[in-house]
Simulated scan of single mutants.
Amino acid sequence: MIEISKKFDQPPVLILTAEQAVHSVSENRDELSRWFRFRLPTDKSVKLLSSKADFHDFSLRHDFPVPRTAILESPCDVALLDQLTFPCVLKPDDKRSALSGEKERAIRVDTLKEAREHAAAMLETPGGIVAQEWIEGADSNIYFTLFYRGDNGQAVATFTGRKLSCYPRNVGSTAVCIAAPDAREVLEPMTLAFAECAGMDGMGSMEYKWDDHHLKFVMIEPTVGRTDWQEEIATLCGVNIPFSAYQYELGHPVASPEPRQASVAWRATLIDKLPRHLRTGVTNMVDGYFRWDDPLPALKYYCLNDPLRRIVQLAQQKSPSARPGMC
């Protein structure tokens, strides 16, 4: 990275997009700050917010709404699952263990027996896990607020969106999403209040789910120090958060972008479909890889990066035995 920076007349703005990169830059920030312009929370805050267990404890201490959770650090802690109401979701405490393939990213379990079996298997590899009680609601109950915070907590840019479907169902990544102006007045102040409390400077986001039983939003997990999977829906709706961050860090004036009431939806791939009952008002579907004026990313992704896997994925989505969409 330093060798790349030496090619520029001025330190370039560094915008991170991957979990591992956030930790690498955070741990080497003193040296890298001589060569790049970037904004991150303190390393202590990066580590706290990257741990689902620490995030849960922090949220409880500061009265932010989170699902009831058991923290399992070793096989001896499996007994803590007895305290939960099922179904639940099991996740690795540190997302990097899922990205490296050491643990499953997320598993929904419907019974205590099933939870004990999966928890024991996940704890065979280094690192703890968390078990969160399931928040009732469909995929479309998932919301998110993206942001960039500058000096003194200034909200440089914010955007609130809503997932319409996930893949895999129940516990997957965003498949289709849209803007959510109706939730903005509730979620953006809550997100920025959490960011202020936790010292979340720079790029970040918070994911929520609307609880159909208790009729309230519950925090699921934050993203710290990097762009999120849903960043492009914000840009399509007029809020280009990375560009606003770039302008801000260069000291240029940043106009306060207001999200447009766009009828656009973003989908991760051509395979992902907009749920039929949620199509009202959506007139434009934008693919995550394909553009007529820039087709090469789609060519590489769909034709060169394991096309057989795309066919299998499509077949799974069309399977009538698949469980109705929940996330």
Rank of each mutant, 00 (worst) to 15 (best):
residue 76 C to S: 14
residue 240 N to C: 13
residue 77 D to R: 13
residue 310 R to S: 01
residue 311 I to T: 00
residue 263 S to E: 09
residue 241 I to L: 07
residue 69 T to Y: 14
residue 243 F to M: 10
residue 44 K to F: 04
residue 227 T to N: 04
residue 176 V to K: 02
residue 111 T to W: 06
residue 280 T to Q: 10
residue 326 M to V: 15
residue 240 N to V: 11
residue 95 K to R: 12
residue 261 Q to C: 03
residue 254 V to N: 09
residue 14 L to A: 08
residue 233 I to V: 05
residue 161 G to T: 15
residue 29 R to C: 10
residue 111 T to I: 03
residue 177 C to F: 00
residue 255 A to F: 13
residue 79 A to W: 01
residue 219 M to A: 10
residue 323 R to T: 15
residue 263 S to K: 10
residue 34 R to Y: 06
residue 152 N to D: 09
residue 297 P to V: 15
residue 206 M to F: 11
residue 208 Y to K: 00
residue 129 I to V: 09
residue 26 S to L: 06
residue 309 R to H: 03
residue 5 S to W: 09
residue 6 K to G: 08
residue 304 L to P: 02
residue 18 A to E: 11
residue 93 D to A: 12
residue 73 E to L: 11
residue 157 A to D: 05
residue 122 M to C: 03
residue 233 I to E: 01
residue 221 E to C: 08
residue 81 L to H: 02
residue 139 D to E: 15
residue 201 D to Y: 14
residue 212 D to L: 10
residue 152 N to V: 12
residue 206 M to S: 03
residue 110 D to F: 07
residue 235 T to E: 03
residue 259 P to N: 15
residue 35 W to Q: 08
residue 145 T to V: 04
residue 100 S to H: 03
residue 111 T to D: 10
residue 93 D to E: 15
residue 316 Q to M: 13
residue 198 A to R: 00
residue 73 E to C: 07
